[in-house]
Amino acid sequence: MSHHIVKFENVTFIYPDGTSALKGISFTINHGESVGVVGANGSGKTTLLMHLNGYLLPTSGTIKIGDLILNKKTRIEIRKKVGVVFQNPDDQLFMPTVYEDVAFGPINMGLDEHSVDFKVRNALEIVGCYDLKNKPPHHLSGGQKRAVAIASVISMDPDILAMDEPSSNLDPKSRRALINLLKSFKHTKIIASHDLDMILDVCERCIVIKDGVVVADGPSNIILSDQKLLEENNLELPLILQRR
């Protein structure tokens, strides 16, 4: 199953203004794995995610998604494989109604009306929001927006789901619902977050990055209980592991 692999080889990225955001990142993610990417603000998490579907292209190094090496030509194909859920659902839900939003991807993939309808329905039912299909996004609660944003990505049947801070701005109940939803997905998952409890809950593997380099990579329960490592990276132990 080589086509679900994400492979970063010595990837660097320098923004046009000269800021060097990634300084040689390498890792391999296998099919079905769920990986948390953690690090302080400005460590390069979001830049890394933006490489996953080719919005940014590496300055040097290679990124391989499945069998494809990411470049200008392959990125359209790669975008069908990697679904990205953004930090702010308001940026992701840009269509006038929930239904049209979830249908945006499938229609762009060139599916016929019938299959579009099927995919939209399916995706909305998975996240439990089918009843909201005719609502405009600005009538939804924070948790609903997040769920619909996820539906808008899974309606494209991606192999890999990448998410930026999926649990930010959610109340505890919505956050719990989200965690259960994420756990139910069989996709390869890459989740960037400060919410270490969620990472511990959802991801079996964890990558810590600092200033654009990988400083630790291993099973979540080991990395996230290493107090010294976490504090060096402006993080702290997940609440569930803090003894009081």
Binding site: V82, G83, D91, Q92, N108
Partner: peptide, 23 residues
């Protein structure tokens, strides 16, 4: 900045310059 992020979100869902709309 937001427009930039929205454009990114559109691209990642296969936007090719045409906005789909209802029949």
């Amino acid at each position: 900045n937001r427009a930039e992020r929205i454009y990114y979100a559109m691209l990642s869902r296969g936007y090719n310059g045409n906005m789909p709309y209802n029949k």
